[in-house]
């Protein structure tokens, strides 16, 4: 997106399901903002920004129910798939959230899993190399987000860059699902914009409306 570049890779592994959710697998999204992508990040453990973004991505993916976790079950109580959805930012030029969510959704859409069978006698799960791989059972309700910022309580900016981000008073992220259903909205600061003639208006509705248009444009591109 612009100069922001995010690469997302999905690794599938096999684990024992949780005791209270015997027939459910796991979806583990993480975003890494390495020191490479921008001078403002330092090498070492994940920065605060990376932690916040990872958690918001997790919320967006879980809340949208893009992937029913029950479809990741191989054998109830014994084996289930764990999908590690890892995104790495290569170039950070603002608005990593939208770019990462888009990368994650796109990666999930072309993920295929090998057919696996659990052998109760040996307690092992064996995958077949010959049988065709199956795509994930994704719902159509995949999340697409759009982020907006308000500068100087006057200007509403869509898709803020790294230069604009620290100058914004307010940042609004709208995550929409199928048919414009709202999955989540996060807003930091006030959404009131004052016009040139002194009048004030709330722009949250406007943001949701333009996210809807954005989603309509993006969905066909996902293929």
């Amino acid at each position: 997106m612009g100069d922001t570049t995010v690469v997302c890779g999905i690794k599938a592994e096999i684990a024992e399901p949780e005791l209270d959710r015997e027939s459910e697998g796991f979806l583990v999204p993480n975003l890494d903002l390495p020191a490479m992508c921008s001078p403002k990040f330092k090498p070492g453990p994940p920065s605060e920004e990376a932690q916040v973004l990872s958690e918001r991505l997790n919320q967006a993916l879980v809340a949208s129910g893009i992937l029913p976790l029950s479809s990741l079950c191989i054998h109830p109580g014994k084996a289930a798939w764990v999908l590690y959805v890892d995104a790495t930012c290569i170039n950070y030029n603002g608005n990593a959230f939208d770019a990462t969510l888009l990368a994650m959704v796109a990666a999930l859409r072309n993920t295929t899993l090998p057919q696996a069978t659990y052998d109760p006698e040996t307690h092992r799960t064996i995958c077949s190399r010959k049988a065709p791989r199956v795509p994930l059972q994704l719902s159509a309700n995949f999340p697409i987000s759009a982020t907006f910022g308000i500068f100087n309580s006057k200007h509403l900016l869509a898709d803020p860059t790294a230069f604009e981000e620290p100058l914004l008073d307010t940042s609004i992220s709208v995550v929409l699902g199928e048919a414009g259903k709202i999955i989540s909205i996060s807003q930091a600061g006030s959404a009131v914009v004052s016009d040139e003639d002194g009048g004030q208006r709330d722009v949250l509705e406007e943001c949701i409306e333009s996210t809807k248009q954005c989603r309509e444009l993006l969905v066909p591109q996902l293929g």
């Binding site: 592994e13 684990a15 949780e18 764990v82 995958c127």
Partner: peptide, 10 residues
Amino acid sequence: GPEGSQPPIF
């Protein structure tokens, strides 16, 4: 993720 997971065995 969960405690301990293995890559798939083919």
